[in-house]
């Protein structure tokens, strides 16, 4: 009986003590930061350029950062942030990541067997990786491990695939890719992409990858003015003025494809 009384008493006393400490020594939290924090996605991806969501909320409250830097937040959330901060809303176009390579094991030639740490940067530092093409996806999944949203799947034949519904365009994969195969493009314009990243001449590319862009210019000629730009021997989409989806029909190597 005494035990129960003692335990209960201790509990009550400790609870009281905690309450008092919070009451008198608690650090006041800026209510603005709290309400901003609630609007944050909470993924702590760092896409805004700050250490995480609460850091960004703090930075916005103190005027160190502008709203709209977060690639993940919805437009409404950004608008609410602006309202709370009393600034003009300034939304940025949401982005999406694209792996500009079709060179999986079936298409791209493997020059050698890579024996080492399972990481793209490590493979890059060893003879430039095992794929014959020195511009394509290395297929070891550094981007997939870097993605905070689990939006990147490594296909069994060594090519990264981005799931558009999960991708928030935070840019982590873009930073992780040592080959710069991943590009960030405006989400609204992401209808068709050139899935090739090699600026080399067609004969060189063809020897190492069957799915490479051969620089035939068919797409550039068929599409409207300035919709597809030839970048050396590589076609590239002008995402400010994207071509219609039908353009994919003309590509002989099928490296110009609809977004998948």
């Amino acid at each position: 009986m005494i035990d129960i009384v003692m335990m209960t008493g201790t509990g009550v006393l400790l609870g009281l003590a905690i309450g008092l400490v919070v009451r008198y020594f608690g650090v006041p939290v800026n209510p603005l930061v709290e309400s901003l924090n609630e609007l944050m996605p909470g993924a702590n991806c760092g896409g805004c350029g700050l250490a995480g969501c609460s850091d960004y909320a703090n930075a916005m409250a103190t005027g160190r950062a502008k709203p709209g830097l977060c690639p993940v937040m919805s437009a409404e959330a950004v608008a609410k942030c602006c309202e709370l901060l009393g600034v003009e809303s300034d939304t940025t176009e949401p982005k999406i990541a694209v792996v500009c390579c079709s060179g999986d094991d079936d298409h791209a030639a493997k020059q050698a067997f890579y024996n080492g740490v399972n990481d793209c940067l490590n493979a890059m530092l060893v003879a430039g990786g095992s794929k014959g093409c020195t511009y394509g996806c290395l297929g070891l999944g550094s981007c997939a491990r870097a993605c905070p949203f689990g939006a990147i799947e490594m296909l069994p034949n060594h090519l990264a695939k981005i799931h558009a519904d999960l991708c928030t365009g935070c840019g982590k994969c873009y930073m992780a890719c040592p080959r710069n195969v991943i590009k960030l493009v405006p989400r609204s314009a992401a209808k068709v992409h050139v899935y090739c990243n090699s600026p080399k001449k067609a004969p060189i590319k063809r020897t190492v990858c069957k799915a490479a862009c051969i620089g035939c210019r068919k797409c550039a000629k068929t599409a409207g003015e300035g919709q597809i730009i030839m970048n050396g021997y590589l076609a590239s989409i002008n995402y400010d003025n994207p071509p219609a989806e039908g353009i994919v029909e003309v590509c002989p190597t099928k490296c110009l494809r609809k977004a998948d």
Partner: peptide, 10 residues
Amino acid sequence: DTSKLVVSSS
């Protein structure tokens, strides 16, 4: 035969 070579770090 260079088709079966292994590459690895030193």
